[in-house]
């Protein structure tokens, strides 16, 4: 399941990169920082990534999980910190 989730995250990163300038591209690694002071994307980019990913995950796993969670998008130890923590978070939501 985790590999599929990573694949979906990378696909959403591709979509986001297509919207961003050359100097604001996200690389596709599990350590890539998505959210926080070292992130390469702005708030609108983050919203677009999360909305696109939520849709992709729900389509793939036939679920109705919500990733657009305000606390998750604002807390210091956000599950959106890196690709890896985001994959863990989605996996946890899918198991609930």
């Amino acid at each position: 399941m985790r590999n599929k989730i990573i694949e979906l995250i990378y696909s959403s990163i591709d979509e986001l990169n297509a919207q961003n300038e050359a100097d604001s591209q996200l690389t596709k690694t599990e350590d890539t920082v998505i959210f926080g002071k070292d992130s390469n994307i702005d708030s609108l980019g983050l919203v677009n990534l999360i909305v696109s990913l939520e849709q992709a995950v729900n389509d793939e796993f036939n679920t109705e999980i919500s990733l657009a969670d305000e606390r998750a998008m604002s807390q210091e130890n956000s599950p959106f910190s890196t690709v890896s923590t985001l994959a863990d978070y989605i996996e946890e939501l899918l198991k609930q």
Binding site: D42, S43, L44, L46, V47, E70, M73, S74
Partner: peptide
Amino acid sequence: LKTGSPAYFT
């Protein structure tokens, strides 16, 4: 919106 505005402000 100013650069650095939180996503939830957007």
